[in-house]
Write a protein that binds this DNA or RNA. Structure first.
Lengths: 258, 258
DNA sequence: AAGTGGTCTAGACCACAGA
DNA sequence: CTGTGGTCTAGACCACTTC
């Protein structure tokens, strides 16, 4: 199915469900579910009564765990990367806790400067349990992709992550590296990433300069007004109480009704 | 279906699909789709081979356009709100552009201080086209919900919004109101919200104090490695190039495969 | 072994788009 | 009017959980 639509241009109509079903030798309902998946991923758009079409590449094609490089390209910049330092040592209490390993276990710490069109955008400090990436050196990450390396050299795939975002100001080292004045506004990101088996792979701390980096987020109205009202809930919460939307901003685009 | 599961406790097993189907007098496939919807909304969880269960109320029950109040309650605080000022006047170029109205059209501007457990958390400046909310006064929003007002008094529902997030530092007025030192790190949110008919309803500018407010975001791996590769794309983009995940952080939880 | 969700089939009727 | 997607039906087999 993916191969089939790969041949089409944006805006082209996909053959009808009935036609594709007989072409693939499956029932229409079965083919329908395949299309549903592709619609959910943003590759196709349905128009009732008319047909199914190849979708415009979305500005935010399901922004899930996008890489720095891909994000920058989408914004129209040429991404690059400089490894500043690479060290190895015991995790310590804080990093150990984040990576769910013993504080004594060895951790590889790599600091990279990320640039867009040659302009420094962020300082990224990456911590990885050493035993997960034997042989990895700092230079391996020069202008390269850590996630690709994980996948290709170590066979590690990532499933999910949790990230916190908070404002900060650039300290001396950061303002030097980012080439911004001392105490400039900046965004601090901290992220932990896990494998499908719930093993923590990395803890990353990134400082992005605030004058050049902005998060853009699409909001969607929640499900109907349908709410489950168990006895317990009615006690704890005072009610839905929707007033002005709070900035906790997540887009969920699953193709179903808003 | 919603009524049916409303009677159950968290963790309870829902009757089997076959049973519910005959109970409602529909085919199993039909009932299945109903359940799919509820799973997508986070009310139910399926366990293959075992059954379908009433889900834990999620920490982030589909974080879509959550209100300040609801967000604060979820974080365990008691939200409140103080209207600082309410003025009316021509939109001007900037606000007019954001609200897609003429710069001469009258706009209601309301400044509110948002608190959690009595502690100032944010300063929120709300701009609404006057003609959409005739009779609305600043006091109406004292400890009240703007979205509820829109819905109930004016019959306006909201469909989607777009929001930008960037770091900033508190200026004099902001640091006074937020009770933080001058030039403390803060988050600046700017949001425009639309109705289902694509009419802009509000433009909101919020400054959140950085020491007490943090965004937490769950990341998900994208769709398989399947990518559409049209000729045009191969030219423009240098390739997928996944390296370290960039902080553009959106959770999409639609219950389908990651 | 029985029951569950997951998937598929081969039909059917509907509302709507488009010529 | 024809073709399209949207929805529903009444079965079927599978892999899995649970006892």
């Amino acid at each position: 199915m993916r191969d089939r639509i790969a041949e089409l241009e944006v805006g082209d109509a996909v053959p009808s469900e009935r036609q594709l079903a007989s072409e693939f030798g499956v029932a229409r309902m079965t083919l329908r579910r395949a299309i549903e998946g592709l619609v959910g991923e943003g590759y196709l758009v349905r128009r009732a009564g008319s047909g199914t079409y190849v979708a415009e590449p979305k500005i935010a094609q399901r922004l899930t765990m996008t890489s720095f490089s891909e994000d920058m390209r989408r914004r129209g910049f040429q991404p690059s990367s400089q490894t500043i330092s690479a060290e190895e040592g015991p995790a310590g209490a804080r990093i150990g806790r984040r990576l769910q390993i013993s504080p004594a276990e060895s951790v590889l710490t790599i600091v990279r400067r990320r640039l867009a069109d040659g302009v420094p955008m962020a300082i990224e400090t990456l911590h990885v349990p050493r035993q997960l990436v034997p042989g990895l050196r700092g230079e391996d990450l020069e202008d390269a992709s850590f996630y690709d390396l994980l996948q290709q050299r170590y066979g590690i795939t990532l499933a999910r992550g949790e990230q916190t975002i908070e404002p900060t100001v650039a300290d001396e080292a950061e303002s030097d590296a980012l080439e911004v004045p001392l105490h400039s506004p900046a965004l601090l990101f901290e992220r932990t990433t896990w494998t499908p088996e719930d093993r923590a792979i990395e803890f990353v701390r990134s400082v992005y300069r605030g004058d050049r980096y902005q998060l853009v987020v699409e909001l969607e109205a929640g499900p109907p007004v349908a709410r489950r009202a168990t006895a317990a809930e009615t006690e704890t919460r005072a009610g839905p109480g929707t007033d002005t939307a709070t900035p906790v901003a997540l887009a969920a685009d699953d193709g179903t009704a808003p």
